[in-house]
Each structure stands twice: as C-alpha cells, then as structure tokens.
Design a protein around this nucleic acid. Structure first.
Lengths: 331, 331
DNA sequence: ATGAAAGCGCTAACAT
DNA sequence: ATGTTAGCGCTTTCAT
C-alpha cells in the first residue's frame, strides 16, 4: 500500500499539501491539486485509517463500537442492520462486540474498544447500573444506548415504549376473552423486562382480572428458559389459557414446548410474543406479536451517535419509538 | 488514557523497558519489572492497539475482518458466533462487514478493511470468481473462506459437503414416497446453490424419477424469492408434492405461503429445508432440515485464520464438515 | 499557496 | 539489563 509520502514524492509536493487535498481543506492551487490527484490514482493510494486514528484523537477515526448482549437474538440482528446501514453511509466501520449476557466478556470488550480508540459506542448495557459503560460515558466518549438506559446518567437512548406496549398487548388478550394469562419474563436485571412485566400487571389489574403470581415467572431471556418455564406452566393443575412471552427467544422456546405437546394455538393456549420477527408469518399459526421497530432503533441510534460525535455538546435525547401490535393468528 | 511514556516516567525507566515487560520479552530485572507493573496498575495503563497496529505491520494488530453476504440469514449469524468465540479467546476483535449481496458494498468494505490494516480476513465471497477477494489473497493477507471457495486460487476454505448433503436429503424424500419434488434454489452465482441443485438432480435421476424442469426454480436466496417461487409452484396445474428449499430464508418464505394457503405439511406438501435453525422445533410442524454445523464452520475458520497469521507458509486446507439430516415432521 | 517539523503511542534495531 | 533513537502514516501548527 502506497503511503502519503510516495504520493507527495511522485507529485513533487510535500505531504502537507497532499493531506490538504485529501481533506479538501483550505486553498490549494488547482494545478497542484490535479498533480496530486493524478499521483493518487496512479499509485492507487488509500489513506491509512489507522494512522489517521492515531493522530487525530477525536471523531476522525471512522470507527464505531457496537456492544450487544446476544447476537443470536433476531432483535439485535435487526438493530445491528440499522446501525450498519447508517455507519456504512457515513464511512464508518463497526467493531462488533457480542457479550452473550456475560459481564466478564462485556468488561473485556469495553477495554478493548477503548484501546482501539473508537469514535463512539452504541451499547445495550448488561443492566441499567452498568458501571463499565457508565465510566465510558463519563470519560467523554460519545455513547448511545439502545433498548436500555443508564440510571442516573445523562445519555442518548433509543428504545420503545415497553410498558405501554405490554399494557396494550395484554389488554388485547383480555379483550379476546383470555382469563388466565401467564407472563414469561426475561432477566429481571434488564429494565425492559421489568417494564413489560409492569405493563402486564397494570393491564390485568385495570381489567379487574385476578393476578395469580404463579402465572408470572421470570427466566433469563433465553430460548431454554422459554422452554422450561412453559413446561412448568403447562404442568400446573390449573394451567394458563394464554401466554404473554417477554422476548423473541422466549416465544420460540414456548412454541417448541407447545408444539411438542400437540397443543393447538390459540384454541388450547394462545400466544402473544413481545418482539416480532421478519418471518413470523412462517410460524403456524402466524404469531401475534408486539413489533419493535428494531431496524429503525439501530438506524436512529446510529444517526444520534454520528451527530454526537460531530457535536459532543448537544443535549441528550431519549427517543422513544412506538411498537406496533401485529395481530395475526396465535392470539 | 495513560500512555507508555507516562508509565515509563512514573517507574523511572525508559519506554523500551516498559515495552519489554508488556511483551514479556527478553530478560528484565525482576525489580524493575515490579516497579513497572506497579506504575501500570496505578495509572490504569492500557496499551493502544492502534499505535501497535500502525507500528508492527503483521499479525500483531489483533484485528480481524469478517465479510458476509447477509447478516439476516441465521446461518451467517451462527458462523459469526463461532468466529467471534475464537477471536475473543485469542484477543482478537472483529470488524463486521455485511454486504447484503451487494457487490458495490462488498468492494467498499474490502477497501476499508485494507486501510484498517487487519491481520486477517474471513470471507464468504459474493461468488467464486470474486476478483476483489482474490486480489486481497494475492496481496498476501491471510484469508479463510467460508461456505464458498475461490476458483483457481489456493486458499483455506471451510464448508460443508453440499452436493452429498442435498443428495442424501432428496433421497430421503424419495424414499418417503414423494414423487414430484420441487427445488427452490438460491442464487446460481453461489457455488453452494449449484452444488445443492446438482445433488438434487443426481438423487432424482439415480432413483429413476422423472426430472421435471418446471419444478426447478432458482431465485435470489432471499425470503421474498422463497415466497414468490412457492406461489408459482403451487399455482401449477400439476403442483409438486414436496419442496426441497435451497436455504434458510427460502424455506421460511415457502412456509409463509404454505401457511397462508392453509395447506397441511407434510400431508398436502412436504418441506425439507437446506439449513437448519436453532429454533426449527418451534415451527409447526418441526422442520426436517439439512443441518450445517454453522457455529463450527465459524470456529474452524477462525482457528485456521489465526494459524495462518502465525504461519503464513502453511499449506492451504480445504476443510469439509459434515452436515446432518435432522428428521423432524415436515417431511 | 506550500513546506518544514513536531508528535500521536508504540516497536525494534542498535548502543551501552 | 536497560536506554536511545528511528520510524509507522498521518494531521496540524507555524513559517515562508
């Protein structure tokens, strides 16, 4: 790979001038500019992003970190797609850090990202009291949180109206006539899990339905937990007639168990999932679900981050996107 | 962030000595080592991976590029997980480049990766004649291909026995008694699409079944193409009694159409998919599928890449993993 | 309008 | 065993 020096030599100018035309800064004589452009072309010169990053400490490195809890969850894949599109359009590139709900791994990745001199970070922190992410924000790195905020910390957040969405979904179930609606929640440490649970509780109460605490079980947000909890619920002497599942993976786990028992959805048990998937119509019956605009969450987060990199002083924004109840046939 | 210089000053030594203890190279007096370690701790010093990368041109940068055609395809997500695990264990970090089957985007990303001075690349090239990836290999960057090779080029590849797997799958369908088995293929430019088609053809012929060319349709490997082609097939005057779908996304698209028409699987039409998903049991009925060991493909590729980075002279390996027919209830 | 030179944080000769 | 020094490829004053 040719370096700026070689370009400068070939064009018979100094590297400073080359740098100037590259950053189309200030006034450069049209003639010399042409000479330089020619040399660049001939040498197939491409600037080293590494050197650039080393030199200019802020925002010019075109490198973003993305920290997500679980790449196997389709929700985060879609978020990632949104981020990636914005990043790509702005000549940024992404270091992907999937910490698989493992806080040790999260800590490692965060250290590495710092030492990679990223220009900004999009993160779904392990929980809202995540000291590691908080420290990074305090250190002045531009950060945008997705799906979860940071308690007591002013930071950009893009998320969805979890409580209201859950409330609306459960209300829908109630109106459909379901009485014993169980909720399989995600990790209680995750704020969105708690909000969805709260929405569930509120809806039940507001509609005068009895709140059977045995019907509320929180797992660890995984497929396996979806299976386990569903088993448990279905084994009850008085099992639920409907399931409100707390995320994508839980929903899928629940479906596996229900299918395994040859139960009919929604006749024997109805299912309404939080989180939609692009292929929810491929399920049989098609899944009724709360659709978070995952791609858009990622896109917005990317935009906010790039804004913040350019203008670190801009006041923080909490952007709440609306989710949508996709009524299909499982409830 | 503290720099090596500050550490050196605090410990009262030169930066060279600091560098030595960091790379636990050569002999350093135990006493000074302690002093330095102490200073490092006190300053919370972390080496800059950027500076390191700029300086030492080969393999020390701990940065890997991953180039994949479609992050929305669960197969690639699992591959990515495998790569990521190996990378993480070896202190490498990943720049994720999803080119969404768009060759312009692929080209852009490849350029950027070069200028990021990555130590190695794992790629699923757009096709086997991909000049851009070929050039990178020729330039001497360590590269491992997954899922697809590079025609006329000696390069490490990790893939699956596509032809045999398809052959086996279709034979299974035939033995089950299906006669009019349709194949919805992926992009003909992708080698694995062609191999799976060939496996299909061979199986049909070897079992003395008529090869109705109307039953063989190649799309673009997407969910949408899965839907379109399935529509077309089901609208035939003499529709197929079984579907052999060419990848994950196609399968899901096909299922949506089949469900939409209230057709029973496998009674009205059987489905066998190439590519399994972690949640295939959540489908109703559970999907019979050819399971590629996607995670392991990623893991192996990661291992091969790190080996090659350490030893660029090692002869190339074509590693063919076995896929497995998961017989469930859709066929 | 252009060049010279310092320096980002580190590695790797080369000295001592 | 440790220090000095010359870069890696670039940006950015400060001169001219």
């Amino acid at each position: 790979m040719a370096s700026m020096n070689e370009v400068a030599k070939r064009a018979g100018v100094s590297i400073a001038t080359v740098s100037r035309v590259l950053n189309n800064s200030e006034s450069v004589n049209e003639e010399t500019r042409m000479k330089i452009l020619k040399a660049i072309k001939e040498l197939k010169y491409q600037p080293s992003r590494v050197a650039k990053r080393l030199r200019s400490k802020s925002g010019a490195g075109n490198l973003l970190g993305v920290l997500i809890p679980d790449i196997q969850n389709p929700f985060y894949v879609d978020v990632l797609r949104g981020i990636e599109d914005v990043a790509y359009q702005n000549n940024y590139v992404i270091i992907m850090c999937n910490f698989s709900q493992d806080e040790k791994k999260e800590a490692m990745y965060l250290e590495i990202l710092e030492s990679e001199a990223i220009d900004g970070l999009i993160a779904a922190p392990a929980h809202e009291d995540d000291q590691r992410v908080k420290k990074i924000v305090r250190n002045g790195l531009p950060v945008v949180c997705v799906d979860r905020g940071l308690k007591g910390m002013d930071v950009d957040v893009v998320w969805v109206n979890n409580l209201e969405s859950a409330y609306q979904a459960v209300s829908f179930m109630i109106e459909k006539g379901y009485k014993r609606i169980a909720h399989i929640g995600g990790l209680p440490t995750i704020p969105s899990s708690r909000l969805r649970l709260e929405g569930y509780r509120n809806a039940m109460q507001d509609h005068g339905l009895e709140l059977d605490e045995n019907l509320i079980i929180q797992g660890d947000s995984s497929y396996a937990s979806g299976m386990q909890v569903t088993e448990k619920l279905l084994n009850m002497k008085n099992p639920p007639d409907a399931l409100f599942t707390g995320n994508n993976l839980i929903t899928l786990g629940a479906l596996e168990v229900i299918n395994g028992r040859k139960l009919q959805i929604p006749k024997d048990i109805a299912v309404l999932g939080f989180d939609d998937m692009n292929w929810s119509n491929a399920l049989n019956p098609p899944l009724t679900a709360v659709r978070q605009p995952a791609y858009e969450i990622g896109k917005r987060a990317g935009e906010l981050l790039i804004q913040r990199i350019k203008d670190p002083k801009r006041p923080c924004i909490h952007m709440t996107l609306n989710s949508e109840l996709k009524v299909r046939h499982s409830c």
